[in-house]
């Protein structure tokens, strides 16, 4: 927002907090929908909403590049894969039943509350965060170039390792998801091929 100094300062003073709470109030019900919605495909779509609001949070934290990557990879890529996987399995079988067994619910709620209270109380009790409030966030261009330089200097090993991990995951996913035809399928297949050949022969005879 260069060129609008007054607007920028006004927005920083007034809008940021409001936008944060707006995003939070949108995101929390969406996250509940992800884990509680009866219809699992709908909860897959709600996951996109959660990821998009998190991208909004990243923009508020002046991590523009990460926000865009979040939208591109998480919001669209991963979630679409999830939705497709849901549609490939049988979502209707789950639609009728409860999303969670009641025997699991009590412990689950306990675990969730316990984890939350642990984290929150730790946050509250820590007095001396080395927070640098006086340092302004990097501008978007600097942020971008800093990330790029770091990835190819300090973090180049991690970067290469991530690429190897992705390659391994790609191959592994293909191997896992590739349908191996069962034995009776194979028999059917060969039978079909025989039929195909005989029909071709028949065609040849007709043509002659």
């Amino acid at each position: 927002m260069e060129g609008f100094p007054q607007l920028t300062t006004w927005a920083q003073a007034n809008v940021e907090q409001a936008v944060f709470y707006l995003l939070a109030v949108i995101a929390i019900p969406l996250a509940y929908g992800v884990v509680c919605d009866r219809n699992i495909i709908r909860s897959g779509f709600l996951l996109i909403g959660v990821f998009s609001t998190i991208a909004g949070l990243f923009i508020l934290l002046s991590a523009q590049f990460l926000a865009l990557a979040q939208i591109m990879i998480y919001g669209v890529g991963i979630t679409l894969v999830v939705v497709i996987a849901l549609m490939l399995t049988n979502p209707k079988a789950e639609k009728e039943s409860m999303p969670a067994l009641s025997i699991h619910k009590g412990p689950a709620i306990f675990v969730a509350c316990f984890l939350f209270m642990c984290v929150y109380l730790a946050l509250r009790s820590a007095e001396n965060w080395p927070v640098k409030t006086d340092v302004a966030a990097l501008s978007a261009a600097e942020n971008l170039s800093r990330i790029g330089q770091s990835l190819l200097t300090n973090y180049s090993f991690h970067f290469e390792f991530a690429s190897i991990l992705l390659l391994a995951a790609l191959i592994g996913a293909v191997m896992l998801a590739k349908a191996e035809p069962a034995v009776h399928d194979l028999n059917e297949l060969s039978a079909n091929e025989d039929k195909l050949k005989s029909s071709e022969r028949a065609d040849d005879v007709v043509k002659v």
Binding site: F45, I48, L68, A69, I71, M72, G75, V76, G77, T79, L80
Partner: peptide, 8 residues
Amino acid sequence: AIASIPVV
């Protein structure tokens, strides 16, 4: 990034 959203 934005252009990848419509498919959703």
